[in-house]
Design a protein around this nucleic acid. Structure first.
Lengths: 203, 203, 203, 203
DNA sequence: CATGAATGAGTTTTCATTCAT
DNA sequence: TATGAATGAAAACTCATTCAT
């Protein structure tokens, strides 16, 4: 049993445990003891590696974003053409890890936490900006820039809304249905734009 | 000074204080002491009237929903025609009390709380169903029932999404812009439906 | 059993308990639990009334100084003539409450604490200034002002020195012996001054 | 890199680090981690060499005393005549290393610690006795033994008092002023003795 | 009706110390 | 010789809740 080089192992285990705990309890008000127990270590060790609960939590949020970003980048790389890129972004938002009940709950908890923690808020704003700019970039190739930004804004909000409604578990929101709703919204917005543009010059 | 009949006065003061405290701190993790202080009474009195923190919180959520419902009902009563009724629902969601930073923060906090408290979750599901059914009822008069439900679902999610993005404060989401985005989405969805229907027979 | 108006009673009990605990253990590193136990209350109550350990400790130091000051003022009121006033100050410094092993130990502990706590340091500097100025005031009537200040400085230091040596318990420093040593030092300093002054003009 | 014979090097580095840490923070409540960090080693190593924090601290106190003793011995060796020897003792007490803020703070911290640790108390009593006996030895050659002991007692207390007032930083106590005040006290005490003795036979 | 008094249970955090390597 | 890993124990502090008045 190697007893050295445990730091990265423990850090990852603790961050994963934090996501799991937050997801289970649906709040950031989890105890360090709980997180540590899930990671199979003492609460003291969690402090040793992260310094404080806040820092562990911030690191956890960062990890969530990193995962999402990694998935987004690779999905965009495979997408062919602007419309396909928009679809890729939507798909990633609702996929696998992101849509696991655990992750959804954690995400929502962080949204709430953003009201108090500047660090968390900054990370969440970063995510929001990134999502918006990714969408705008692709949509710009399909319609005027102003409209692209507007559609991106609505789409981003729709994605977030579907997300939290999923967290609530009120409606039967499967991954597929969520994606379909988002895709439809984009299609509808683009279609309407095309119609109006056609009409515009004619009038 | 009359000492009787204080109950309703105290209950209302405490619920209002709770909303204010939750809104200020962006979390349900406010203390009974804080709430009581804001209401100008002792923490013991809050317990006397509500039995426990949980019950006070649930009552608070109920109050938020009651306000929203009252506004919705009166807005619907004034609206003329199905499309106007959809607009009324949207407008109410983003209006005055509902969109005050305080209320938005409280709302978000309750969403998070729903993960743990069955009582809160039930109330929130009730709100979600009601919003969906209000929208569906009006939209059914403008398109087939299946499509109406689908559009209602997307619209409800969009409203919630705009809500939490507003709470985050990342984008400059004014009341007007939020309403405009939601209205556009409904228009686009309906327009697209009309076009496809037109195309359908032609194909 | 009156259950109201306990605050001043508890505050005093806690401050006394703090002096006792600090005196017993010879350090400010006593626990709130220990202090609370001695006062017969829960640690939570100590926090309730003082807000924090630091504030309780500062209040305790303040109490020690207040006692000393009260004794000094009354002793000075009874003293007749400048030399008698100096004696009164010396006597008070080594008397009763001040010289109780408990008080001595607490005093020393606060001296140490002054290195870190601005609040404690300020209080201690205040005490040092007061002692010096009380001595100087009386000595000024017995010799030139510059000399008075100098003798006051040495006397104050001697008093403090006797104090901490007493805390150490190395030498058999009784109250009487401490007073005698301090009195002798003042006498010797004044006598020498008189001799030199007498010599001065003659030379 | 030789791996053997490190023990004395590490022990000295750790003791020096302890003095530095205690001096900086003005208390013995420094952590082993802090001390080890300053010495550039792991906390585990500090334990390896000293067994426990208490033992490291005791060793540190011993080191402080050893330094003082060494300086005293060499100063006494150079002093010519009994009065000069008294001056040498005073000078050493306030010189260089001894009067550095760091050392003063550490000294004071140990005084406080003496209340709890028998080991530290014993060392401090040893220092007190030594100072007293050094002073008495020289003063005995200038006046009767009983008087010599008495003056030594007052002088030792004065030195300690000047020391802690210096630690407090209330008065502008420079090395020179401290020495001058102590010298004056000795002169005054001896002078008075001479006068009284002169008077004695005459009366 | 209303509150000051009081606390038990729980949370974060710190730290000396141990141990396998 | 030296250390990274790990923890038990304890401390400050918080807070919902109870109770006597």
């Amino acid at each position: 049993m190697p007893k050295v080089g445990m730091e990265p192992v423990r850090r990852k285990a603790l961050v994963d445990a934090a996501i799991s705990a937050i997801g289970d309890q649906g709040t950031l008000a989890v105890t360090m003891s709980d997180i540590a127990r899930r990671a199979g270590v003492s609460p003291a060790l969690a402090h040793h590696y992260f310094g404080s609960k806040d820092q562990l939590l911030t690191e956890t949020m960062r990890s969530l974003l990193r995962d999402l970003r990694r998935d987004t980048v690779s999905a965009l790389a495979e997408a062919d053409g602007p419309r396909a890129r928009v679809s890729a972004i939507i798909r990633v938002s609702f996929h696998a890890g992101q849509f696991a009940p655990e992750t959804v709950a954690a995400w929502l908890a962080f949204y709430t936490e953003a009201q108090r923690s500047e660090a968390v808020r900054r990370l969440l704003v970063l995510y929001a900006r990134r999502l918006h700019s990714n969408l705008t970039a692709s949509l710009s190739q399909l319609c005027p820039k102003t409209e692209a930004s507007r559609i991106a804004e609505a789409t981003a909000a729709l994605i977030d809304g579907l997300y939290i409604r999923r967290a609530l578990g009120a409606a039967p929101l499967t991954t597929e249905r969520s994606i379909a709703l988002a895709e439809d919204a984009v299609d509808a917005a683009l279609a309407r734009l095309a119609t109006q543009q056609g009409k515009g010059p004619a009038a």
